[in-house]
């Protein structure tokens, strides 16, 4: 899966969690500051993303999940880990 598709899915998950229009958010914007996604919200987002990609995130770095770019890195790493685990 390419980065663009991953980012689209992350944005969809983020929109479901926050019920906000996240289409214009920049990848490096802090989600807590711009849409109030706190630490609990980030865990919910990680959970939603796991479902969206049908994968398990082993390293639950909720700090890194505070930007869309960070989420991208988490998902990419998890996709590799999950592929290796099969």
């Amino acid at each position: 899966m390419n980065r663009q598709k991953i980012e689209i899915e992350i944005r969809k998950a983020l929109a479901r969690i926050t019920e906000e229009d996240v289409s214009r958010l920049k990848a490096d914007e802090n989600l807590a500051e711009v849409i109030g996604l706190d630490s609990l919200g980030r865990l919910e987002l990680l959970s939603e993303v796991e479902d969206a990609f049908d994968l398990t995130i082993y390293d639950i770095d909720s700090e890194k999940a505070s930007t869309i770019g960070g989420m991208l890195e988490i998902v990419e790493a998890a996709l590799i880990e999950n592929a290796e685990a099969v």
């Binding site: 609990l40 919910e44 990680l46 959970s47 939603e48 796991e50 390293d59 639950i60 909720s62």
Partner: peptide
């Protein structure tokens, strides 16, 4: 990490 995993699983 273990506690966060449990929370995420509860959300699912």
């Amino acid at each position: 990490n273990r506690r966060k995993r449990h929370y995420m699983d509860l959300a699912k």
